[in-house]
Design a protein around this nucleic acid. Structure first.
Lengths: 250, 250
DNA sequence: GTCTTTATCTCGCAT
DNA sequence: ATGCGAGGTAAAGAC
């Protein structure tokens, strides 16, 4: 770990500190009054204002205004960030190719700069994801319907991937689409796409959208198209087999 | 503008500076070795490592590792961030309701802290967006097809919004879905949903997906379902009327 | 590389 | 508030 803080560096000091950060693979944080230009998939301009700029060793570049979760301008990792003095001002430039794009921050006044050579080997561990919901269903297909048997998980078709391909107690094939969050019209669309495909070759196919909830419009769309909704909101893997799944078939 | 930098503050100094930042509506940036816990829509844990933490006056909270565009943990604005000392360590806690969730960063060692009372009245101005593509098409419907006439823009239906409702030279209705980026299967789905709806009441309806490009799978899906693809990659408003649109109908 | 899908998506806009 | 769709979506996984 190395940390260096500068207060109100002049453009030359700014660029020197920034270059040191890039050379050493350190993270750079800047508090400044600046203008920002973006040129790439679209183009845009952000007028003068006070912001925080962050540059990471992988080429990530972020411009954060005082509010909002998302950076107002950014560059994903994969490219590179450079610093220079231009017309008496410090300038940070982030670039990448594929797609070719650039973000340039022209720094009118820098209030603070921090160089932080950070080491972080930890990876984030998460639970409650859609992947876990899939596992839970694969191991407890009865929570969707008594007698349902999973035939295949993540089956590829010519129109995309089906979450589960199953067969019900009567031997009728069932296409299952699973969502961790409230179902939207786009999720209905996906299921409808897969079911239409199977209907080309198979007379009897059921389509099942599994999600914790769905808006009325989505439920109507499902109903109108002969598809089913199954409410499944709990899928704790720790309660394997004992969990009472909420079933709201209609 | 007010800026204060602290180097290696102890937990008490950390909390005092953080509280000053929250009270004054300032942005807070911290370089530290910490652990992070998230509890909310999912739950997760990030083990010890060196990161940058950012807290904004609107309740936004970000945890940035040395790589990657996205924060490894975060809280969107709308809630609040607080600081306290717990078991001899500084702790930052971001909370919100609807949905109820919390991110807690337990700071084992703080290397640097910056309080930045920033003023930023600028808003980002962007061009090349889908809205501009819509304007361009509304003013130049011929780039989609000779003789096409736009009847309605953003028409609401019981299954969602149609980008354009138009009529071709023969008087046949055309449902048009416009995408600024390469068309995906979900975009095909959307168009298919709208067209199916119109087919309930109308025998002859055409469906047209307008985008700069589309994968073969998407083109096949369109073809198999009697829908059309129109390639439109340039839509500069400055070249009104003179632009040669690339047409790749099939 | 390209394609497909998820996401603690966020955000804006409309009802 | 909820619902719906866009996004410079980014990131992951498969091929």
């Amino acid at each position: 770990m190395v940390l260096e803080q500068l207060e109100s560096p002049d453009p030359d000091a700014f660029v020197e500190a920034a270059k040191t950060a890039f050379r050493n693979g350190a993270m750079l944080t800047v508090e400044a009054e600046c203008e920002v230009e973006y040129e790439g998939r679209t183009s845009g301009y952000l007028g003068p204002g006070e912001r925080i700029l962050v540059a990471k060793p992988d080429g990530t570049f972020l411009v954060h205004q005082p509010t909002g979760h998302k950076p107002v301008n950014w560059m994903p990792g994969g490219g590179s960030v450079s610093a220079r003095v231009s017309e008496g001002e410090a300038v940070l430039l982030a670039r990448r190719s594929n797609p070719t794009e650039r973000v340039e921050a022209r720094i009118h006044e820098c209030y603070g700069l921090t160089r932080f050579d950070a080491t972080d080997g930890a990876t984030y561990e998460e639970s409650g994801t859609e992947a876990e919901m899939h596992e839970y269903i694969a191991e407890n297909p009865d929570v969707l319907e008594e007698g349902l048997r999973i035939v295949e998980h993540e089956r590829e078709t010519k129109y995309g991937f089906i979450d589960f391909y199953a067969v019900d107690g009567d031997g009728t094939p069932v296409v299952v689409e699973v969502k961790r969050i409230q179902a939207t019209l786009n999720h209905f669309d996906q299921l409808q796409r897969y079911v239409s495909l199977y209907e080309e070759t198979n007379d009897d196919v059921r389509g099942m959208l599994v999600a914790p909830s769905a808006s009325e419009r989505v439920k109507r769309a499902l109903r109108d198209n002969g598809l089913e909704f199954v409410g499944l909101s709990e899928f704790g893997l720790d309660a394997k087999g004992s969990t009472e799944a909420k079933l709201t078939d209609f």
